[in-house]
């Protein structure tokens, strides 16, 4: 018999189910008094550096129906391109910006909404710069393992064109599924990022 590799297997994923909010956004779903505030609700402190932006969107199933029970987490660099993480080795990130957010999709409209800042650029493994992006992680009833994608910014055309990760998308017709259009209104700068789980214009999901 060949020797055994001394490795454990990763615990398998299971769906977050329809009641994921009980555990991850209990105040949002009416379970008051257990935690003072839902984790990840506020990402940006008053003194945070960078351009304030709102990111909204919906998660659509294969019939085009928005998911009203999804939960989304985002993870991103600060305005200088540094992550607020103890394993960030390149420097100290802005202490007034968490970089991590968590929001449910609305129970009626299916819309999610993050108040954040526009991230700076971070390097790829070979040192080339990636285009500014926000990492998305989507869980819900019917999703057996969390889906990982990225949102890029439509007003970063030059950076997007040279991003080593976007360059890996073989079918260029799919690149626009990762790029959020920018709008400016009375509430400031907003980006809209609709995520299509299945079918026409299906969002690119990553195995990282």
């Amino acid at each position: 018999m060949v020797q055994k590799l001394d490795m454990l297997k990763e615990t398998p994923s299971q769906t977050a189910g329809p009641y994921v909010h009980i555990g991850l956004t209990p105040n949002w779903c009416g379970i008051d008094g257990v935690y003072p505030e839902d984790l990840g609700r506020v990402m940006v402190g008053p003194q945070a550096e960078g351009e304030r932006i709102t990111v909204t969107g919906r998660v659509l199933d294969g019939s085009g129906t928005p998911l009203k029970d999804a939960l989304i987490e985002i993870w991103q660099a600060d305005a200088a391109g540094l992550h607020n993480s103890p394993v960030e080795r390149r420097g100290a990130a802005d202490p007034h910006f968490s970089g991590w957010g968590r929001q449910p999709t609305d129970g009626v409209t299916g819309e999610f909404r993050f108040e954040t800042i526009k991230p700076g650029r971070v390097p790829y493994k070979d040192g080339r710069l990636q285009a500014p992006h926000i990492t998305f992680w989507i869980v819900a009833r019917g999703i057996n393992i969390g889906l990982h994608t990225r949102m890029y910014f439509a007003d970063e055309e030059a950076a997007n064109a040279e991003c080593p990760v976007l360059a890996r998308v073989e079918h260029k017709v799919r690149v626009p599924t990762l790029i959020a259009p920018r709008s400016e209104g009375k509430d400031g700068v907003a980006y809209t990022f609709d995520i299509r789980l299945q079918g026409e214009k299906e969002t690119v999901f990553f195995d990282v």
Partner: peptide
């Protein structure tokens, strides 16, 4: 598991070696 039928991507996942964006995380 019926809800997975319309909530599962049909395209293959795009493989990518993790970058600093994925190898960091909140603590």
């Amino acid at each position: 598991y019926k809800t997975s039928v319309l909530r599962s991507p049909q395209h293959a996942l795009l493989s990518m070696e993790g970058t600093v964006s994925e190898m960091t995380g909140p603590r």
